[in-house]
Every structure is written in structure tokens, then in C-alpha cells.
Design a protein around this nucleic acid. Structure first.
Length: 719
DNA sequence: GGATCGCTGATTTTT
DNA sequence: TCAGCGATCC
């Protein structure tokens, strides 16, 4: 252990060894936060202060939890059993399964995802006769979620808090929605923490039990906690006060999801006698990168205050490049410039996996994707649809849920007619009406209607077939286990046949996904265990080993690092995001600035910030001026360039495109450059290709991606 | 029950 | 510009 401690700097060591009482570790970007967390964890175990089950360690993401678990095992030289280490939601769910009865749920309650939540809300809105046109369900759902994030159940919500949403009937809708969830034996994400907080608050015995169990609390990313998470932590910490929170107020970028920076700003008040430890030595980035990031974030008010300093001598300023700022004429040129640099760096031996393009909004990745495809550069887009959100996977999950819980109406509705069983809107409405009247789940209702002969024709046959199958699959589940049962289900339900018959280009991929689904099932002992995992861990395990450029939003980039980082779209109108500013004013501007700070501090070696003078927004071109954030970084840390920069004015009458052979330059002929029929060439717009014919200065080229085209020779270069 | 038309609206989204 | 939807038609 001494060895692990010896590897820490004095502040880190303090953060690890201050075990008693509340501790707030303010960890700037790249200052060894994870190392501190895991070493502290190991330290508690190795000094015999606590056993694994006596430490509650909370993270926000499954990824962070996994990393902590792995690094802890590495530190200790063996995997650790019996840990209470996980995300807020996973830990709350684990607790709630034990005490579900206290809030009117069964232990095997279903955890609904966003999609289910919305469908359920729509149904309740219909029942409550609230016009979904006038009040978009996502808007109302958003408000309900914000209440849950603050720990406010339907009873805590007043008419004043709801305003005129849903014509002033949102509180009633909220109540009805919660009642419906309970009737379905289901909880949404917000419920997990809200219910658990409620339970702890009203059951002192139970709380006392947890107090005796959890002697130490460790919390990661504290700046991102919302009110209910804070309340939950405070309840659990109120006996022993041994709570250690790690976070960075400068990286709080999730306020729009209910996170309250105030939690971290208030820490010393909330936990009297708290010790605050600052980690400011950055071991990640070069000095110019740190200086630029620090100067930028200094424009925010109300910070706890930290200054990142280069942590090691090797990162001396003169040894490093300044932050590059490229001013371009338009967004297409911006994409080209990024592509060119990536190629240049790749040629000089940099790995693609160490390059990332970080954008403000998801749609921005498209331009770069297109460019990279043209150039034949491998890339991956992080974010987007995740594995468990794909339609075929969600269908399979719905079937699985129905096996485990016959009363799962949402699952039933999802798959009742997938594959087609002739059950349409009419039959479904009849089912619903009866179910509501008899207050029975849809499956039971369907059986009753069939028995009465009230469900006939195609729909009747379809429903009868499904119910019979479900009974058989449940038997298979009991006898041969969940993997066999699900395999049988996918075949016998006609689901795989449906996909096989599907001629669309996506169908083969969907079948492949289902195979992957079956493989994933095998990692779990029970179907219920798998379903819990799916609900709480919704993620893709994409292999990060392949050498690809990463494209993602700034939000998705938090916690990651790369040698080389591109930050495109630094323009007013794009970044800071105008909608955010509209909604949140100065607070939102500061959050946007933190986002910029997160972006810059992802880089170890180089940052390239780009902005374009013109950008096409939807249909039309718009003039753009550089982002105000660029003005907030002192020139001394910047190296300006690009066709539209002051240093690089283009020739009059040209658009200043950065092409190998600009329009205004006379390029050598194809022959002079050794381009003949059969040559591999490269074209700025169409990428790589092969020359199939040549006549004078005209070439016919079969491009790898763009098809065959006639091109003047001066626009291509040898590949 | 499924295909087609036309309108709308378009940030971020750890769980 | 364009995807995603609800309404409408066959």
C-alpha cells in the first residue's frame, strides 16, 4: 500500500488519507481524480477501517463504476466481492427491491426507460382528456421528471408550481401517471431515488440499519448531483459524516438534466467541518492548453476557484504547440480542414484513436462523417442509438418482460402485433376498454375475452396464438433456462422469420443484433437479472481498440482524453448554443463556457478550434462571427490560421479554399504528375478513386465512394 | 392494416 | 434540408 501512496502528490495523498469527516475533493480536469478515488477506496480496505460491504461508492455512469471496480482490483491485486459500488440508480434500485413494499411495489417491479415512460404518459393523458397536440407529452414528461429530480412526489406539487401546463391539470396528470406506474408494478428512473429517499426519511429503523452498514461514502462527479440524489446521500451520511465527494464545479454541464451546481458550492455548509482539498496539478495537457482553458473558465463567476497548473516539467510551454485557431470561409471548408489535419497527423504517425472531433450538437457530426468517408478515414460516432434502444432489441426485451411479468401491459402492447398477428387498433381498443373496466392486466383481459368468444376473426386467432405460445415459453424458461427460452421465443413467435423476410438493408443487421442479444443473455443467471441490467446499464460495449477517429458531442466527451482534439463550430449561433442562452440567460452562458472548458481540457497535446464565416443552417446560408469564447482566450496561447484568418487573406475573387491545387493556381497536367490510366488518385470532393480513362486534360475516374465521374486533371492528385 | 402525403420543427441526454 | 409524425386514403 505504501507504494500506492508514494505515487501520489501531496494533495492527492491528503485526499486519500483524510478518512474521517466530510471531505470535498475539488479535482480539476486531468488531476488524477480517479486515481484518488480508487486509492482512497483501497486505503479504507487495507487499513482495516472498513470491509467492502461497508463502503458505499456512487458514480454517475456505469462506465465510471466499472473503471473504479477494475482499478480497485488492480490496486489490491484481486477482485473484490460484496461491494456496494455502482451508479446512483443501480444502488437505489438495489435498495428499493428490498423495500418495494413500503411504496406499494412488488420486489420484481419493472424499471421503465424513457420510451415506455412517454408511451405511458400519452395513455394517461388520453384517459385524463388532455390534448396531446396542445401539450406535447415530452414537455409534460420533462416537468414531471424535474419534480422527481427534486424529490417532489405528486403530493408535494402545487398548482402554482405547475403553472398553466396541461391547462393547469399537470398535478392531476402526475398523480394519475404515478398511480398507473404502481398498477403496472413499474418505476421510472426518477422514482428509484425519489422512493428510496422517501423510504429512508420515513423509516428511521431502516435508515439506522444503513447507517450501521455504510461507514464510508464515496461520491464521484458530485457537481452533477440533483436534489434527490443529494437528499439521498445526506440521509445516508447523517450519522457518521464520513462522506467524501469528488467533483469539479467547472465541469458541471448537466443542469438541464436537473443537476445542481449549488450542491457542490454548498458542500461546506451542508457538511459542517468539511475539509476541502484542491487537486490542481494537471498531468494531462500541455501548458498552452491549460493556460487557454484556465483563462476561458476564469470568465465564470461563482466558482469555487481552482487554477490548473502543469503537473510535470516535461510539459514546459516552449516545448508545446499553442492552441490552433482556424478561421475558414464556410462549413464545408471546416470539414475539409479537419480531414486534412487528420491525414497529416496520421502520416506523421499519430494514431486515429487519439483524435477526436467534439461538437456542441449531434447533427454537427454529419459533415465530418461525410468528409471522413470521402477520405477513407475510419471513424466512430459515440452516442446516438445505443444497443438496447434499437427497435428489435426493445421488442425482444418486451417479450422477455412479458415472460417474467404477465401483467406488464407496456410490454404486451409493444409486441402484441409484432410480428403481425392481425391485431389492429380496433381489437386493441376493445382490450383496453375491458381491461380498464375489469381492472385486470391486458394479458388476463385478452384471455377472458377469448374465453367469452368476444375476440374473433384474425385478431382473435392472433391473440390466442400468442397467449398459447407465452405459456409454452414460460415452461421452457422454467425447465431449460432463459437463454433457451428466448431463443425459442424469437423463432417460434415468427420474429426472426419476419426479419428474414424483410428486404430492407437494415434487416441483416437487426438479425445480427438479436444474436448479440442472446449472447448477452448468457452472461446473466436469470432473466430478471438481465432485465435489470438492461434497464440500468443501457450501453454499448463498442470495442475501443480499433484505430478510429472519435466523433461525439462535448457532453459525451466528459471524462475522456485524447492526444489531439478538434473543436469545430466555435461561432455565435452555434456555440454558445443560442437556445440554451434564451432559456437560461447568464447561468446558461456559464454552462456553455464550462462545456468549452471541458472540450479544451480533453486534449493532451494539441487543440484545434475552428470556426466558419458562413454556415448552412437548414436551407439557407448564414453569416457567422467567431464565438465569444475565442475572445476570452489571450492571443498569446493561440496560433491563428486558416483561409479566412487575418494572417491568411485569400486572393481576391476566390473563396480561399484550402485545396491541394486551388482554382486560381495552375496545376501541372496529369501526365506531368505521372497520372495515367490505372493510377490511384485523390479528389477533394469525391475522395479516392482509380483512373479508368484519360483524354487531354479530362480524366474518367471510378471513385471508391462516389461512383464514376469525368474530372479535369488539375483537380486530382496522386494518391 | 399498410402505404403515402404533408406538416412541423430541428441542444445537450451519464441513468 | 430532412426526418419523423399523424392524418388520410386504398
Amino acid at each position: 500500500m505504501a507504494e500506492h501512496l508514494a505515487r501520489l502528490n501531496p494533495e492527492q495523498r491528503m485526499a486519500v488519507e483524510t478518512l474521517e469527516g466530510p471531505v470535498l475533493v475539488l479535482a480539476g480536469a486531468g488531476t488524477g481524480k480517479t486515481r484518488v478515488l480508487t486509492t482512497r477506496f483501497a486505503h479504507l480496505l487495507l487499513t482495516g477501517r472498513a470491509s467492502p460491504g461497508q463502503i458505499l461508492a456512487v458514480t454517475f455512469t456505469n462506465k465510471a463504476a466499472r473503471e473504479m471496480r477494475e482499478r480497485l482490483a488492480a490496486l489490491l491485486g484481486r477482485p473484490v466481492e460484496g461491494l456496494w459500488l455502482g451508479t446512483f440508480h443501480a444502488l437505489a434500485a438495489r435498495m428499493l427491491r428490498r423495500y418495494a413494499g413500503l411504496v406499494g411495489l412488488d420486489a420484481n417491479f419493472t424499471i421503465l426507460d424513457a420510451d415506455d415512460q412517454l408511451r405511458l404518459l400519452k395513455q394517461v393523458m388520453e384517459a385524463e382528456r388532455i390534448d396531446a397536440k396542445r401539450w406535447p407529452p415530452p414537455l409534460l414528461m420533462g416537468q414531471i421528471q424535474r419534480w422527481k429530480d427534486r424529490g417532489e412526489g405528486p403530493r408535494a406539487v402545487t398548482a402554482a408550481m405547475a403553472g398553466d401546463l396541461a391547462g393547469g391539470r399537470l398535478p392531476a396528470l402526475y398523480s394519475a401517471y404515478q398511480a398507473r406506474l404502481k398498477a403496472l408494478n413499474a418505476a421510472d428512473f426518477g422514482d428509484l431515488l425519489m422512493y428510496m429517499t422517501e423510504i429512508l426519511r420515513h423509516n428511521p429503523d431502516l435508515l439506522g440499519q444503513y447507517h450501521r452498514q455504510f461507514r464510508y461514502l464515496l461520491v464521484d462527479e458530485y457537481q452533477d448531483t440533483n436534489v434527490v440524489q443529494y437528499l439521498w446521500l445526506r440521509l445516508l451520511a447523517q450519522a457518521q459524516h464520513n462522506i467524501c465527494c469528488v467533483g469539479d464545479d467547472d465541469q458541471s454541464i448537466y443542469s438541464w438534466r436537473g443537476a445542481e451546481v449549488e450542491n457542490i458550492l454548498r458542500f461546506e455548509k451542508d457538511f459542517p467541518g468539511a475539509k476541502v482539498i484542491r487537486l490542481e496539478r494537471n498531468y494531462r495537457s500541455t501548458a498552452p492548453i491549460l493556460a487557454a482553458a484556465s483563462a476561458l473558465i476564469a470568465h465564470n463567476a461563482g466558482r469555487l476557484g481552482k487554477t490548473l497548473r502543469p503537473g510535470s516539467e516535461a510539459r514546459a510551454p516552449e516545448a508545446s504547440e499553442r492552441v490552433a485557431v482556424l478561421s475558414l470561409w464556410d462549413s464545408e471548408e471546416e470539414a475539409r480542414a479537419v480531414g486534412e489535419r487528420i491525414e497529416a497527423w496520421r502520416r506523421s504517425g499519430e494514431s486515429l484513436a487519439e483524435m477526436a472531433v467534439l461538437v456542441r450538437a449531434g447533427f454537427q457530426t454529419r459533415a465530418f462523417e461525410e468528409r471522413l468517408i470521402t477520405l477513407g478515414i475510419p471513424y466512430r460516432v459515440i452516442g446516438g442509438l445505443r444497443f438496447y434502444e434499437r427497435a428489435e432489441i426493445r421488442d425482444a426485451i418486451a417479450y422477455a418482460r412479458l415472460l417474467v411479468q404477465p401483467g406488464d401491459d407496456l410490454a404486451f402492447e409493444r409486441i402484441i402485433n409484432v410480428p403481425r398477428r392481425g391485431v389492429g387498433a380496433v381489437a386493441l381498443r376493445a382490450l383496453h376498454e375491458r381491461a380498464r373496466a375489469a381492472d385486470t392486466p391486458l394479458t388476463a383481459t385478452a384471455a377472458a375475452l377469448l374465453a367469452e368468444g368476444a375476440l374473433r376473426g384474425r385478431a382473435g386467432e392472433g391473440v390466442r396464438g400468442l397467449l398459447a405460445h407465452l405459456a409454452i415459453w414460460r415452461e421452457t424458461l422454467a425447465r431449460e433456462g432463459h437463454v433457451m427460452a428466448m431463443r425459442a421465443l424469437l423463432d417460434e413467435s415468427g420474429y426472426t422469420d419476419m426479419l428474414r423476410a424483410d428486404k430492407s438493408p437494415e434487416a441483416p443487421g437487426r438479425l445480427e443484433n438479436l444474436k448479440e442479444f442472446i449472447r448477452a443473455l448468457a452472461d446473466f443467471e436469470t432473466l430478471a437479472g438481465f432485465l435489470d441490467h438492461v434497464a440500468l446499464v443501457m450501453e454499448n460495449e463498442e470495442n475501443t481498440t480499433s484505430d478510429k477517429v472519435s466523433l461525439m458531442t462535448l457532453h459525451a466527451a466528459k471524462g475522456l482524453e485524447f492526444d489531439n482534439v478538434f473543436l469545430p463550430g466555435w461561432e455565435e449561433g452555434v456555440f454558445p448554443n443560442p437556445r440554451a442562452l434564451e432559456e437560461g440567460g447568464i447561468k446558461a452562458l456559464e454552462e456553455e463556457r464550462r462545456l468549452a472548458y471541458v472540450g479544451i481540457t480533453r486534449a493532451r497535446k494539441r487543440v484545434v478550434i475552428l470556426h466558419a464565416a458562413q454556415r448552412r443552417i437548414y436551407a439557407n446560408w448564414q453569416d457567422s462571427i467567431p464565438s465569444r469564447f475565442l475572445d476570452e482566450i489571450p492571443e498569446e496561447w493561440l496560433a491563428r490560421g486558416g483561409s479566412a484568418s487575418r494572417q491568411a487573406r485569400p486572393l481576391p475573387g476566390t473563396r480561399g479554399a484550402v485545396t491541394a491545387f486551388p482554382l486560381h493556381a495552375r496545376a501541372p497536367t496529369a501526365k506531368a504528375r505521372g497520372i495515367v490510366v490505372g493510377s490511384r488518385i485523390f479528389h477533394q470532393n469525391f475522395g479516392h478513386g482509380t483512373v479508368v480513362a484519360a483524354e487531354d486534360d479530362r480524366l474518367e475516374i471510378a471513385f471508391d465512394e462516389a461512383g464514376t465521374k469525368h474530372i479535369l486533371d488539375r483537380f486530382v492528385e496522386p494518391a
